[in-house]
């Protein structure tokens, strides 16, 4: 279910401009996927992601969530790719065999997924989503996108609560929680119907409220919240952008393998 990944903190990374952290995450992900070498994603994990998590005090949570998201995936990856890969087996076990290629492939994919997920968890653990949106708007993202993301995040809990109260009401009226897939789909209908219709019927009122707050105005917007930034961070963001583009180009042209 929905997590509140973010916890307030005072570490260096917590104090970074959210766009800096986002740039770091994206650079890490792109670099991890750029080369076939196993050491590259492993090094990014050990020398960047983990130390950053330690510095910001989220290391244990990072490990816990990585395990939760990726442990089953990685196990399956080794089973499937280790056993099914096409070239000759490394180990012949009768009907199945372990293939070197498959194991290498599984390891590489697992390491890349760890960087992908770890980099984003690092961002989410240290950055308030509202501040991320405000900072992105300050960097030119359309305010509409910020509104869409923030508003959804805030109305989901309310909708979930409504879903639960509809569910309770129906249980109280004696609607059984049915067995079997078809029965369960049927049981969803009286729940989803009122929930969705109720939600959609509020759209008009929300539109009026937004217009009343001049959301449709074409004037140049100002910002109430000021998000700290620094020259050093600006330089580092530009360098990360250059690195990212360079990595993509070098990899696509086959310079990096």
């Amino acid at each position: 279910m929905t997590q509140d990944f973010y916890r307030p903190g005072t570490s260096l990374i917590h104090r970074w401009n959210p766009v800096t952290t986002l740039s770091l995450s994206l650079t890490l992900v792109v670099t991890a996927f750029a080369s076939q070498a196993l050491w590259l994603p492993a090094a990014l994990l050990v020398f960047v992601v983990f130390p950053a998590a330690l510095v910001s005090g989220v290391f244990r949570r990072l490990l816990a969530w990585l395990a939760r998201f990726l442990l089953p995936v990685i196990l399956l990856l080794f089973v499937i790719q280790g056993l099914y890969h096409q070239d000759g087996p490394l180990l012949d076990l009768g009907p199945v065999g372990v293939h070197l290629d498959g194991v290498l492939f599984a390891t590489r994919t697992a390491l890349r997924l760890l960087v992908l997920t770890g980099a984003f968890l690092l961002l989410l653990f240290t950055t308030h989503p509202g501040e991320l949106m405000t900072a992105l708007v300050a960097h030119g993202m359309p305010p509409k996108i910020s509104y869409l993301v923030s508003a959804t995040m805030q109305i989901v809990p309310a909708f979930r609560q409504r879903a639960h109260s509809i569910l309770d009401a129906q249980r109280a009226r004696g609607l059984r929680t049915a067995a079997g897939p078809i029965g369960r789909v049927r049981a969803l209908v009286p729940l989803v119907g009122p929930l969705v219709l109720g939600a959609l019927s509020e759209v008009d009122e929300r539109a009026v409220a937004m217009e009343a707050r001049a959301f449709g105005a074409t004037t140049r917007r100002t910002s109430y919240t000021v998000i700290a930034d620094s020259a050093a961070q600006r330089v580092s963001r530009w360098s990360m952008l250059v690195i990212t583009i360079a990595v993509i180009v070098l990899s696509a042209t086959g310079v990096i393998r």
């Binding site: 279910m1 929905t2 509409k144 509104y147 869409l148 508003a151 959804t152 109305i155 989901v156 909708f159 979930r160 879903a163 929680t177 897939p181 369960r184 789909v185 049981a187 969803l188 729940l191 989803v192 929930l195 969705v196 939600a199 959609l200 509020e202 759209v203 008009d204 929300r206 539109a207 937004m210 217009e211 959301f215 449709g216």
Partner: peptide, 26 residues
């Protein structure tokens, strides 16, 4: 603006119904 206000509601529907489907195990 009226499409813009529809979208968060639509996204909330995705998320809540998706989670319900998950919870009911279909």
């Amino acid at each position: 603006t009226s499409s813009v206000t529809l979208i968060p509601v639509a996204m909330a529907i995705n998320i809540v119904v998706g989670q319900l489907a998950l919870a009911t195990g279909i």
